[in-house]
Design a protein around this nucleic acid. Structure first.
Length: 423
RNA sequence: GCCCCCAUCGUCCAGCGGCCUAGGACGCCGCCCUUUCAAGGCGGCAACACGGGUUCGAAUCCCGUUGGGGGUGCCA
């Protein structure tokens, strides 16, 4: 069995195409079939060769390796022309204003049994004689796609639902070419935006690489994509790719379109990040935290940070205050936790005093601040608020005392004094 | 306009004639836990588009309606 992914280099690899590639790949790996990659670059006016690199990079990032190719359709022009000439010679096609059109009868229907949708058929009368070669001599997608699939021995064509409309023409072409091998067609449901329209640039970021740049990890992306249009009876959604390969069946794919939900993707991402080994987390997250040095943090503290990271860009705001000269004061946090907090003065003064000469360790810092709170009739949850804002600049963040231990006495005290002075 | 596809909670998925007073997940809301925020635990809100059939029995099968989408290029 052989399947293929055949993108055209007219844009970056986008989410919808990636899902198509993924399902082809899952099919191939599940059945031990051969996965062929073919670049459909027959439209010279729209192709951008440098985008091929981007498409290949995105596929590699997702972990979708191919067994053959990439083949370039543009290099097969001679073959495509030979086919057109043959059709012309058999007068199954004719020249019309320089272009070549395939002759289509008006009698009967043309259809196929779609692996996902069942029987689909069209009236031949609704199909016009269509162009298979431009007047400039270059062949068109309808023809090249069919000829290449045929020549490359593709047995399973797995692609988007929007291609259903091309089926009658491609089937007619196959008929004209007199081919007889059985080809299975599976038309995947579309990925749509919140308006239920085919996913496109309107949606915002649709390029796979932009998700990588926004701090999503590849396994979360492939796993999430696999749940769009497909699911298992046990209800488990987050599972290793290997298990998905094991369970994937084309016949289990849905017919209706699916909304690409970044919120749910984010949840998957969070789960994948939480499950990472510390070394892997450091390696992947480090670059996103720059210029702040993630690796310099104590293991326990880092582990906590890892656990609360949904996407990597959230990292810098969690740790920047440890490296900056002044804490980046968030105005809302300041207003709520310090300026508008009647207990702030007492807490700040008390903490300044309590931290002046104590042992500088997170447990001791914890106990001392708790005592200050108690003296003021506040539980730790309330008491730590002004200190947190004064030192970190924000009202939320990773556990406070681990951070204070890293920051050190001198800087902690200086920040507490600075906050106190502002009141 | 014409052709084609689709139709279960807001969203994704399960259900493939009786196990369904429809299950899981995301999100949302409450409670617990707690050093803030997350995480975790517990609970809650929330759907078979509608109308006809078929059947002892329909979310599941058939037809229609409605709604949504895709395609209608000498783009891919």
């Amino acid at each position: 069995m052989r399947c293929r992914f055949a993108p055209s280099p007219t844009g970056y690899l986008h989410v919808g195409s990636a899902r198509t590639a993924l399902f082809n790949w899952l099919f191939a790996r599940h059945h031990g079939a051969t996965f062929v990659l073919r670049i459909e670059d027959t439209d010279a006016s729209r192709n951008q060769p440098e985008l091929v690199t981007n498409i290949l990079d995105s596929l590699r990032w997702l972990g979708l390796d191919w067994d053959e190719g990439p083949y370039y359709q543009s290099e097969r022009a001679a073959r495509h022309n030979e086919v057109v000439e043959g059709l012309l010679a058999d007068s199954l096609a004719y020249v019309d204003e320089g272009a070549v059109r395939l002759r289509v009868d008006d009698e009967g229907t043309i259809g196929w049994d779609d692996v996902i949708r069942g029987r689909v058929s069209f009236e031949r009368a609704n199909v016009e004689d269509f162009v298979i070669r431009r007047s400039d001599g270059s062949p068109l997608f309808l023809l090249t796609n069919v000829v290449d699939d045929w020549d490359m021995g593709i047995t399973h064509v797995i692609r988007g639902e929007d291609m259903i409309n091309n089926m009658p023409k491609q089937l007619l072409l196959l008929e004209a070419l007199g081919v007889d091998r059985e080809v299975h067609y599976a038309h995947l449901p579309l990925l749509v935006d919140e308006q239920r329209r085919k996913l496109s640039k309107r949606f915002g970021d649709v390029a796979i690489e932009s998700y990588r740049d926004r701090g999503f990890v590849a396994p979360a992306m492939t796993n999430y994509l696999a749940t769009l249009g497909w699911g298992t009876a046990d209800g488990v959604e987050i599972r290793p790719l290997a298990e998905i390969v094991e369970r994937f069946e084309l016949s289990g794919v849905n017919k209706s379109s699916a909304f690409f939900d970044v919120k749910k993707l984010t949840h998957f991402n969070h789960e994948y990040i939480r499950a990472m080994a510390p070394e892997e987390f450091s390696a992947l997250a480090g670059p996103f935290a720059e210029p702040f040095d993630l690796a310099a943090l104590p293991a326990g503290y880092l582990a906590d940070i890892q656990g609360r990271t949904q996407t990597f860009p959230e990292l810098a705001p969690m740790i920047d205050w440890l490296y900056l000269d002044e804490p980046p004061i968030d105005t809302d946090s300041w207003a709520k936790g310090v300026a508008g907090n009647p207990a702030a003065v007492a807490i700040l003064d008390g903490t300044l005093h309590a931290y002046a000469d104590c042992a500088w360790g997170k447990d001791e810092l914890h106990h001392r601040l708790a005592a200050v709170g108690e003296a003021n009739g506040l539980k730790l949850g309330k008491a730590q608020a002004p200190v947190r804002v004064a030192v970190t600049g924000r009202s939320v963040g990773p556990p406070l005392f681990d951070g204070l231990e890293v920051l050190g006495r001198e800087r902690t005290l200086a920040r507490l004094r600075a906050a106190r002075a502002r009141l």
